[in-house]
Computed example of a mutant assay.
Amino acid sequence: MLWQLDGAPGVKYQLVIFDFDGTLADSFPWAASVVNQYAERYRFKRIDPAEHAELRNYDARRLMRHLGVRMWRVPGMARDVRKRMAQEIDKIHLFPGTSNMLQALADAGVLLAVVSSNSEENVRAVLGPENVARFTLFKCGASVFGKAPKLKAVMKKCRVTPEATLLIGDEIRDAHAAQKVGMAFGAVAWGYTNPEALQSLHPQEFFTEMSDIAAKVVGRSGA
């Protein structure tokens, strides 16, 4: 179904919700550089860089089993990593083309939101003031498997139905969260998870380049 938003014909979704890390922000190189520093404290297996390609095929639960991460340790580790990122936020950058893409969506009247496991402070710092102003809502600090309630909260606040909403993310757990609340999922090819693993989930949208997002959602390249 196509929606008419602010006089812009052919807009496919009223609300687009973004994951942050691996979708808008290129934070994987930083995360890969620090993760083993937490292995001893949180008692999980150190990651051999040679494993990265294979681990990109795993969903979060399988990855945690592989590394021996205990679920009850995850909240504490997540807080430590978010705090560390805040201290080194200058090392995290948006993927090329992100700002233009967000502007194209905003210009078409699409509502924008972020649902992330990262902190709102970190998300806002990396986005910068101009991009932050394009968003209607931020729901951050989600637990590893706790995005679905935040997705529902965003839709309720924006008064948009699941059928008119798209979640864009780079992980298998993003696809599962979208499915759980009945919204469409758009997978990106440039994030953490192997694109083939994401395509096997049959997402409603698949984006190989950042400019594809605006092209498919509002019919503009956003380049």
Rank of each mutant, 00 (worst) to 15 (best):
K45V: 14
L63N: 06
T193V: 07
F44A: 13
F18R: 05
Q204T: 00
L24Q: 08
Q87W: 03
G10K: 10
V11H: 02
P96E: 14
N57F: 12
A164M: 06
N57W: 13
A108L: 08
D48P: 04
L127F: 11
K180M: 11
S33A: 14
A86R: 09
M1A: 12
E120Y: 05
D174N: 06
S211Y: 08
F95T: 10
L2D: 13
L15Q: 06
V34C: 03
L94N: 00
S211P: 00
A197W: 04
Q37N: 08
K139H: 08
V110H: 02
S99R: 15
E88V: 07
Q204D: 01
F145E: 12
A31Y: 07
H52M: 14
L137R: 04
T208V: 11
A39D: 13
A53M: 09
D90V: 04
Y192T: 06
T98P: 02
I47Y: 03
T161S: 15
K139L: 06
G146W: 03
Q37F: 01
W30D: 13
F18W: 10
R61V: 13
D80E: 14
A125L: 13
L151M: 09
L166S: 02
T23M: 09
A125R: 15
A32E: 13
A104I: 08
R173V: 11
V217N: 00
A78Y: 01
V188R: 01
E205K: 00
T23H: 04
Y38V: 12
H52E: 14
K156L: 12
V11F: 02
Q103E: 15
L55F: 12
R43P: 00
N131M: 12
V114G: 09
R41H: 11
I213F: 02
Y13M: 06
S99P: 04
A50H: 08
R73L: 12
Y42T: 11
A104G: 01
C140I: 11
G22A: 01
A187I: 11
C158P: 01
P129L: 07
P195R: 07
S143Q: 14
M85Q: 14
R56N: 06
I92T: 01
R41E: 15
C140E: 07
V74S: 10
Q179H: 11
P75G: 09
N122C: 05
F185S: 09
D59F: 06
A223K: 11
M155P: 00
G109E: 11
A125E: 14
K156P: 02
H66F: 11
A178R: 01
L166R: 01
D59Q: 07
K180E: 15
V110E: 03
Q179W: 03
M71A: 15
H93E: 11
I47N: 04
L94Y: 01
E54T: 12
W3G: 07
F44M: 13
M183F: 00
K12W: 08
S221R: 13
E120D: 13
H52L: 15
A189R: 03
A86Q: 09
M1C: 06
K156S: 14
V34T: 10
D26N: 15
L67G: 07
M101N: 11
